[in-house]
């Protein structure tokens, strides 16, 4: 690993200045669970590392009737340990429990997972399913983009020179809302998703009909993939295996995976359908109040 300069600003403006000054050779550091590994392995070379964890906004958790705002550097463990988040956004915990082991979760952040912009990131399909908004600061002030528009390619995203992610904002869950994230890995831990699927639904008051739904896939395209047509196909449909299977078919069609050492094209297309259907089932169960996070944990291999 080569030597680099380290700065730890305490305000958003200072961080913007430091990043802008570094050009392409400066990056923000949150937990560092991706960044440091990439520096050590020579996959990334930097002149400046900008630790943003001393900026209060980056470490803040704000939850109210209006929704949840997570500072971009909030560690997964801080989310896991927050009962208010667990109660209001149980599906978010599906991702924060999956990213790394216990020690990694003490450092790794959802914001970092988003900015690392891996097509297989375990949080991003979930953020898309939750209709999350990403708040960005930069030399030209603040701007916001939807989670599904954040990534632009493997390891690439909308952040321009000097910009960094400040916070991610979850809307308040509507009544009868449920969501889930599922991934497939060959082992039961310590693995990268072969395919991931995030899903959310809003059910009718009698919980027999799907009013709206969102589906997103991981590891089947250059970026996490928002499969709008799969969710749209469910709007106004009764809750049934047939309607879920149709949405799953649309997810399979939308998936444009590659074959690599982690999975083949046929396997990934097939799993896109399997995981979409399973994630939708769990989202519906949650909207109906019939499934707990702990049960889901077992499904995701955390027995």
């Amino acid at each position: 690993m080569q030597a680099f300069d380290f700065v730890a600003p305490t305000s958003v403006d200072e961080a913007v200045s430091a990043l802008a000054a570094g050009g392409g050779r400066a990056r923000p550091l949150s937990g560092g669970t991706d960044l440091i590994a990439q520096l050590q392995e020579g996959r990334l070379a930097l002149d400046t590392v900008v630790d943003v964890k001393r900026i209060p906004e980056l470490m803040a958790i704000s939850i109210s009737d209006d929704g949840l705002t997570l500072g971009a550097s909030v560690a997964c463990q801080s989310i896991n340990a927050n009962q208010a988040i667990r109660d209001a956004y149980p599906a978010l915990i599906d991702s924060t429990h999956l990213i790394g082991g216990t020690q990694i979760q003490g450092r790794a952040s959802i914001g970092g997972n988003l900015c690392n912009s891996s097509p297989a990131a375990d949080s991003i399909p979930n953020l898309i399913a939750h209709s999350v908004t990403c708040h960005i600061a930069g030399p030209n002030g603040r701007r916001s983009v939807a989670a599904e528009d954040f990534c632009t390619g493997p390891g690439r995203n909308v952040l321009a020179n000097g910009e960094f992610l400040v916070a991610i904002e979850f809307p308040a869950p509507p009544a009868n809302f449920g969501a889930a994230y599922l991934r497939f890995i060959p082992r039961n831990e310590m693995d990268i998703a072969v395919v991931g699927a995030g899903a959310s639904v809003v059910l009718s008051d009698d919980k027999s009909t799907i009013q709206s739904a969102r589906v997103a896939l991981g590891a089947v395209a250059p970026t996490p993939l928002f499969v709008q047509e799969a969710g749209d196909s469910l709007a106004g449909q009764p809750v049934s295996e047939e309607t879920l299977a149709k949405a799953a078919d649309l997810a399979r069609e939308a998936a444009k995976p590659i074959s690599d050492m982690r999975g083949t094209i046929p396997q990934r297309k097939h799993l896109s359908a399997v995981l979409t259907q399973r994630a939708l089932r769990i989202a519906i169960d949650r909207a109906r109040g019939t499934k707990t996070v702990d049960e889901l944990g077992r499904l995701n291999g955390h027995g």
Binding site: R187, N188, E189, M190, D191, I192, G301, G303
Partner: peptide
């Protein structure tokens, strides 16, 4: 050891 998949205790 991420992609050379030896079993972990959970497997």
């Amino acid at each position: 050891l991420l992609d050379y998949r030896m079993p972990t205790s959970l497997d």
